[in-house]
Deep mutational scan, measured.
Amino acid sequence: KELVLALYDYQEKSPREVTMKKGDILTLLNSTNKDWWKVEVNGRQGAVPAAYVKKL
């Protein structure tokens, strides 16, 4: 499985998103959308802005 690093804090704004903190390591589930990537963090799945994460 592919991992990404959170470059910034992000507070979810809808139920389809997830909150992450700078430095979090997230499991990347889907990166086909260039703006929003689906990730899993702390057992929750949701979208985060692609510009806020970097593939490891």
Results as ranks from 00 to 15, higher is better:
K1W: 12
K1S: 12
K1D: 09
K1H: 13
K1P: 13
E2I: 14
E2C: 15
E2T: 13
L3V: 09
L3I: 09
L3Q: 11
L3K: 11
L3D: 03
L3P: 04
L3T: 08
V4Y: 09
V4F: 06
L5T: 07
L5Y: 11
A6C: 14
A6W: 03
L7M: 11
L7V: 08
L7F: 04
L7E: 03
L7C: 12
Y8D: 08
Y8T: 08
Y8E: 10
Y8R: 14
Y8I: 11
Y8L: 11
D9P: 06
D9K: 02
Y10F: 08
Y10H: 03
Y10S: 01
Y10V: 02
Q11N: 13
Q11V: 14
Q11G: 07
Q11Y: 14
Q11T: 14
E12A: 15
E12L: 08
E12P: 14
E12Y: 05
K13D: 06
K13H: 09
K13V: 08
S14H: 11
S14C: 10
S14W: 06
S14E: 08
S14Q: 07
S14A: 08
S14Y: 07
S14M: 07
P15G: 10
P15W: 10
P15D: 13
P15L: 09
P15I: 11
P15T: 11
R16F: 15
R16W: 15
R16H: 15
R16L: 15
R16A: 14
R16I: 12
R16N: 15
E17W: 03
E17I: 04
V18C: 09
V18M: 11
V18W: 09
V18Q: 03
T19R: 05
T19Y: 04
T19G: 09
T19S: 15
T19I: 03
T19A: 06
T19C: 07
M20F: 13
M20W: 02
M20P: 00
M20L: 09
M20A: 02
M20K: 00
M20N: 00
K21F: 11
K21T: 10
K21D: 04
K22F: 05
K22S: 07
K22Y: 04
K22M: 08
K22H: 06
K22Q: 10
K22W: 04
G23C: 08
G23W: 06
G23A: 02
G23Y: 04
G23I: 00
D24F: 05
D24P: 00
D24Q: 13
I25K: 05
I25S: 02
I25N: 02
I25E: 03
I25Q: 04
I25T: 06
I25R: 05
L26P: 00
L26W: 02
L26K: 00
L26G: 09
T27A: 09
T27R: 11
T27C: 12
T27I: 15
T27H: 10
T27Y: 12
T27G: 05
L28T: 01
L28H: 01
L28E: 00
L28G: 00
L28V: 07
L29R: 03
L29M: 08
L29Q: 04
L29N: 02
L29Y: 04
N30P: 03
N30M: 08
N30A: 10
N30K: 07
N30E: 15
S31E: 15
S31A: 13
S31N: 09
S31L: 05
S31R: 10
T32H: 11
T32V: 10
T32S: 14
T32M: 12
T32D: 15
T32W: 09
T32E: 14
N33W: 06
N33K: 08
N33P: 06
N33M: 08
N33Y: 07
N33D: 14
D35V: 14
D35F: 15
D35I: 14
D35P: 02
W36V: 05
W36E: 04
W37S: 02
W37T: 03
W37H: 02
W37Y: 08
K38I: 15
K38M: 15
K38L: 15
K38W: 15
V39L: 02
V39W: 01
V39P: 01
V39A: 00
V39C: 05
V39Y: 00
E40Y: 07
E40C: 12
E40G: 05
E40A: 08
E40I: 09
V41W: 09
V41S: 14
N42G: 12
N42W: 08
N42R: 11
N42L: 07
N42Y: 09
G43F: 05
G43P: 00
G43K: 04
G43W: 04
G43T: 05
G43M: 04
R44K: 11
R44W: 05
R44C: 08
R44T: 07
R44Q: 08
R44S: 06
Q45H: 10
Q45D: 06
Q45F: 09
Q45Y: 10
Q45A: 12
Q45C: 13
Q45P: 07
G46V: 09
G46Y: 09
G46P: 00
G46H: 05
G46M: 11
G46C: 07
A47Y: 15
A47R: 14
A47H: 15
A47T: 14
A47M: 15
A47L: 15
A47D: 15
V48H: 01
V48I: 10
V48G: 01
V48K: 01
P49D: 03
P49Q: 02
P49N: 02
P49A: 02
A51V: 10
A51P: 08
A51H: 13
Y52W: 07
Y52S: 11
Y52A: 12
Y52M: 13
Y52Q: 05
Y52F: 12
Y52G: 06
Y52L: 14
Y52K: 07
V53G: 00
V53R: 00
V53T: 03
V53S: 01
K54A: 13
K54N: 06
K54V: 15
K54Y: 09
K54M: 15
K54R: 13
K55M: 12
K55L: 14
K55Y: 10
K55A: 09
K55E: 07
K55N: 07
L56T: 07
L56R: 02
L56Y: 10
L56W: 09
